[in-house]
Simulated scan of single mutants.
Amino acid sequence: MGWRIRNGMSISIWNDCWLLGFPVRKVTSSQSTQVDLVSDLIDMDERSWNIDLINPIFNEADIESILDIHMSNSNQNDILCWKGEGSGLYTNLLTKRVSISNFCPRCNQSIEDNTHVGRDCPYARKVWRLLDIRWSDDASNLCFKEWLLRLFMTHNKGKHICIAVTIWSLWFARNRIICEHQYPLFVAIVQKCRMYLRHFSIRTHVLAWWKPPLEPTTKLNFDVCFSYAHQKSCSGFIIRDSAGFVLGSGFIHTHHITYVFMAEALVILQGVHFAKDIGITRSTLESDSKKIT
């Protein structure tokens, strides 16, 4: 997960992980009272970094990292997002020669890869056991992709969503360790999975098979949740190609939203801006909203 900086108004300079690298890191310079949000460092008229302000506040390493961040032409809200790999799988960054520890940050016993995070880590095994997702001993020797296929083949359709949500939750928990130094208990992961599963069970009547777009067009799916009491919305979107590979995904919190139609209309604009930011110019829009057509 990482921030895509637009107006910088949602990102704390001193408390958030927003500088480029792996893991995405916080600034290391001594805190200054001159600036608070990333937006304070941006020349909004020129859509560029205010170098004269940045130089006296930050150390050399932070200055270099800040100036390496490409400034978007959009003045919309910042986006917390994950950019997918062409393979559709999470990539072990060691293969990209990124200099990081190659041991699991939770158990510190084995080299970390997709299989360890999702299956072999003792932490992951406790989560699977409490969710009553089990597999045979011989399946433990399979690669991640074959093991995942085996899980879907040996469990009924009612368990398929649980499997997908659990893998996502384990990876999300791993990223919290790397980016935020937060170590969620495995019981908390189980509770989160069950919460999502309850949400899916409520909405099963609106679930439908996803249909890929025709090549070379991409498809942008979006949805939004709205709180009338707090007058804010959360927009979510995902972009996939004709093979179903994820090209990008993200979400945006927006305040001062007074009614649901406004939230559902806004998510379209936010999704299109997001697609443009990552270089996508041709995309089909799809939503389950009956109010926006």
Rank of each mutant, 00 (worst) to 15 (best):
W3K: 02
N7K: 13
M9F: 11
L20W: 04
V24R: 12
T28Y: 03
S32W: 11
D36H: 12
L37C: 04
W49G: 04
D52Q: 08
N55P: 06
I57M: 10
E60Q: 14
I66D: 09
L67I: 04
L67G: 01
D68P: 00
I69F: 04
S72G: 05
E85K: 06
E85I: 02
S87G: 03
G88M: 04
L93D: 02
K96P: 07
V98A: 02
C104T: 01
P105R: 10
S110F: 08
T115N: 13
G118A: 13
K126R: 15
W128S: 05
L130E: 12
S136R: 11
D138I: 15
N141M: 15
C143D: 15
C143R: 14
F144N: 05
R150V: 01
M153T: 06
N156E: 10
K157G: 14
I161P: 02
C162A: 14
C162S: 12
A164N: 03
R174G: 01
R174K: 01
I177E: 05
I178K: 09
C179D: 13
E180H: 15
H181Q: 15
Y183S: 13
V187A: 07
A188C: 09
V190H: 12
Y196G: 06
L197F: 10
L197G: 09
H205F: 13
A208N: 12
K211Y: 00
L214G: 06
E215H: 15
E215V: 10
E215Q: 11
F222A: 13
C225S: 15
F226D: 03
Q231A: 00
I238C: 07
R240C: 05
D241A: 03
F245T: 10
F245W: 04
V246R: 00
L247P: 00
H253L: 09
H256L: 02
L266M: 15
V267T: 13
L269F: 08
G271E: 09
D277W: 06
I278Q: 08
E286N: 05
S287N: 08
D288N: 08
K290R: 12
